[in-house]
């Protein structure tokens, strides 16, 4: 029996077993490929999305357990209409390979919603679950501060 979920404001009926993680529902069933697969065990943060505004690892949330509205990177902003945090990312030229950045941005957006003026320690605590192999961390930090209106 199909499961109903709402992603980026659009309702979907998904015909997949209820234990399939949200990550693979988004990527393979809904073709929302902005959310990335990195590890499958909540160790890298590449799959981070928001459910009711809370940052979650979508590889760990079974379809049957999705408890609210899902927001993915595609729902945050578009190339033609960037969200403020995405604009900060572009202004600071954050991405290198870019593969982890959807997750980084979704995590950072949730941090700013909760803590509009984050300290360096707040940023470390919120972002240390999001791995970046290219080493873009300093620009991520700068972009978060810029998006918070606290240019360093």
């Amino acid at each position: 029996m199909p499961t109903s979920i709402t992603v980026n404001g659009t309702a979907h009926e998904v015909d997949l077993p209820s234990e399939v993680p949200l990550l693979w529902v988004l990527r393979d069933a809904l073709n929302l490929t902005g959310t990335k697969y990195g590890c499958g065990v909540a160790a890298c943060g590449a799959c981070t999305v928001q459910i009711d505004g809370e940052a979650v690892r979508s590889c760990q949330v079974p379809l049957g357990d999705v408890w609210g509205d899902v927001t993915t990177i595609e729902g945050l902003g578009t190339p033609e209409s960037l969200a403020a945090i995405q604009q900060a990312w572009v202004d600071h030229q954050v991405a290198q390979c870019g593969y982890c950045q959807s997750g980084q941005i979704m995590q950072a957006a949730a941090l700013l919603a909760e803590t509009p003026q984050p300290s360096d320690d707040d940023i470390d605590a919120a972002m240390s679950g999001n791995l970046c192999r290219c080493g873009t961390y300093p620009r991520i930090r700068a972009a978060i501060k810029a998006a918070a209106g606290m240019e360093s």
Binding site: N31, T33, G34, T35, K36, Y37, T72, I73, E74, L76, G77, T78, P79, L82, Q86, W89, V90, Q93, V94, A95, G98, Y99, Q101, S102, I105
Partner: peptide, 21 residues
């Protein structure tokens, strides 16, 4: 220079091989 791939990589619209559909 502003990187040519920056906007796509900040909006989830860059198409890596894993995003081939």
């Amino acid at each position: 220079l502003p990187r040519l791939d920056m906007v796509a990589k900040c909006t989830g619209t860059e198409t890596y091989s894993i995003d081939t559909r």
